[in-house]
């Protein structure tokens, strides 16, 4: 099969499928539903394939069956199989009891094991994830210097530092201290917003909670801006695929041939 001809057909079918999915933007239609179900079917099928080829074959089947060198090429090594791995198949199949009306509780055993593994790890992962952030959140809020210094110990004004001036280690200038104070206040206000367990009657905490809500909006605004960038980039990629990769690079040269 000629690779270039094959690519022409493949890309054309891809564009038709893409346009089929985009047709939902006008309204729900059978063309869209066909491609939607085709997509779901292919995704489900591919998941089953990779489940075996990328996971179970190496981690479970090969361990259970062992291996020996190929009779013709003599490649590969001799490894024994461990029959105890077969216990895992009935354990995994217990999950399928979810469809049994009478015995669906059995499905909770493998699911409970997975949840147990996850929850047991939370103790450790919580500190790995948040420990450095807690220490990073403890920022100095008072300035400790109002000038630059050089190696000789001379001090220079912040407004007109010469080229030889350097920042002393651990120096916290006024602007840095103010930024750090805003950081710490934002952090405390954002945390105080999540005090739902009891009624907040104290005026100071109530004000902090309201301020926290406003400051959380800054985080959400940043998330929105980044999300917009990402979604638009995915759309631009699809347009690039249709107009440049298919139409300009494939179809127009074909018409000229």
């Amino acid at each position: 099969m000629n690779w270039e001809h094959y690519l022409d057909w493949r890309l054309t079918c891809s564009v038709i499928a893409t346009v089929g999915l985009y047709s939902v933007l006008y309204k729900e239609n059978k063309f869209y539903r066909f491609f939607e179900h085709l997509f779901l079917g292919l995704a489900a099928g591919w998941t089953m394939v990779t489940l075996w080829t990328e996971t179970l074959y190496d981690l479970w089947w090969s361990k259970m069956m062992g291996s020996h060198p190929d009779a013709v090429t003599h490649q590969g090594s001799t490894l024994p199989g461990y029959w105890a791995y077969m216990f895992l198949l009935p354990m995994g199949l217990m999950g399928y009891f979810v469809y049994s009306k009478k015995h669906n509780w059995i499905s909770r055993i493998p699911i409970g094991m997975i949840l147990g593994f996850w929850s047991g790890q939370q103790v450790q992962v919580w500190w790995n994830r948040y420990g450095p952030q807690i220490s990073d959140s403890m920022k100095p809020v008072f300035p400790n210097t109002f000038s630059y210094a050089d190696a000789a110990g001379s001090h220079f004004s912040l407004l007109t530092p010469p080229a030889t001036a350097t920042v002393q280690p651990g120096a916290v200038f006024t602007a840095t201290a103010i930024s750090n104070l805003i950081f710490v206040l934002t952090f405390i206000c954002a945390l105080s917003y999540f005090l739902f367990s009891f009624d907040v009657k104290n005026k100071i905490i109530a004000t902090m909670s309201t301020s926290g809500r406003w400051l959380l909006m800054v985080g959400f605004g940043a998330i929105f801006g980044s999300t917009v960038m990402m979604r638009f980039t995915l759309l631009i990629d699809r347009m690039y695929f249709i107009w440049i990769e298919w139409l300009q690079d494939r179809m127009l040269p074909l018409l000229h041939r």
Binding site: W126, Y130, N180, V218
Partner: peptide, 30 residues
């Protein structure tokens, strides 16, 4: 400046709330 002084602490606050909830949920599930 907005990222370092306002966005990061506010998202960190949300993260901590989620983290404490995950820890509590993890304990309850275990």
């Amino acid at each position: 400046w907005l990222t370092n002084s306002v966005q990061t602490p506010s998202i960190r606050g949300i993260d901590f709330g989620i983290g404490i909830g995950s820890l509590a949920m993890g304990l309850r599930l275990w």
